[in-house]
Design a protein around this nucleic acid. Structure first.
Lengths: 146, 146
DNA sequence: AAAATAATTGACAGTTTTACTCAGGTATGT
DNA sequence: ACATACCTGAGTAAAACTGTCAATTATTTT
């Protein structure tokens, strides 16, 4: 079981974007420098994030990206959905076509249930919350979560 | 996010093993035929399942595999653990070493929480339950789950 | 003891996915 | 016009996945 680094980068980048935005667009170059993620790779990710209605782009000098919605309305599962193919753990159940395997899918219910749990959990976390946590981590001492 | 087919095969094979065991060992050849999984691939999986204390092997003619414990004491997460590297979704947190990334891991808590949810869910399902479900599916009509 | 069965092991190979880079292009502010 | 920064698609090296093959070891039956 594995989450792609693509998804991890996307979440990190979104937190960083939200953390350093004060109304003005944030350029990918800045995020790239701060998070040590290759600029061209970030560009790829943000194309998808834009298509997923997570961010808006502003072109030209002084341009960059803005949140498409308030951070409290952006859920982590939406970020990952934009960037990855699917959150559901097994191939047989594409959300579009449903499950193709009729009979032998004894274990189908297991994977389906698991997929639902994963989504529920990630949907329960907002970008707002993550950003707040990041703030308290950098300002306060190193470990503050527990 | 994706669960490897290896894990899926392992769970299917274990259900099939439990379904057709009546005290005597079940050979991989039988499981291979019934589940249409290559024999040599099954062999790979069962080596790991044996090391994971999920099954016991009996060599020689009439040999095969037996459950190492009663089915009600075998949890799905244990099956997957034996066969896959880790259930935790991201690389940075190996259960052995803990997380290596100190500061920048704003999203660390997210993945850790997710990993716990996944484990909790899969640990809540036993091989016994899956086998019962499989029985009712094959004896009853085709769809009985809902 | 010999033969047959079946688990056991390690090495290897084809394919797919991942994680990027590169080379351009397009829009926009100064 | 020019610099900035988004936009796009093609390409690529490395890793992981999904198996196969060959050979060995242990056990039971004859």
């Amino acid at each position: 079981m594995r989450m792609s680094t693509k998804a991890q980068y996307a979440v990190r980048a979104m937190v960083n974007l939200n953390l350093h935005s004060d109304g003005a667009p944030v350029s990918l170059r800045d995020i790239s420098l701060r998070e040590s993620i290759s600029l061209t790779y970030l560009e790829q990710l943000f194309v998808k994030l834009r298509r997923g209605q997570i961010v808006k782009s502003v072109r030209g000098p002084g341009g960059g990206y803005l949140l498409a919605r308030p951070a409290c309305e952006i859920q982590v599962d939406e970020i990952i959905d934009s960037v990855e193919e699917s959150l559901v753990p097994v191939a047989c159940m594409d959300q579009k076509h449903g499950c193709l395997c009729d009979e032998q899918c004894v274990t189908h219910n297991v994977w389906q249930g698991l997929g639902e749990r994963i989504r529920d959990f990630l949907a329960s976390i907002t970008l707002e919350e993550l950003t707040q946590e990041a703030k308290s981590m950098s300002s306060g001492s190193k470990k503050r979560s527990e």
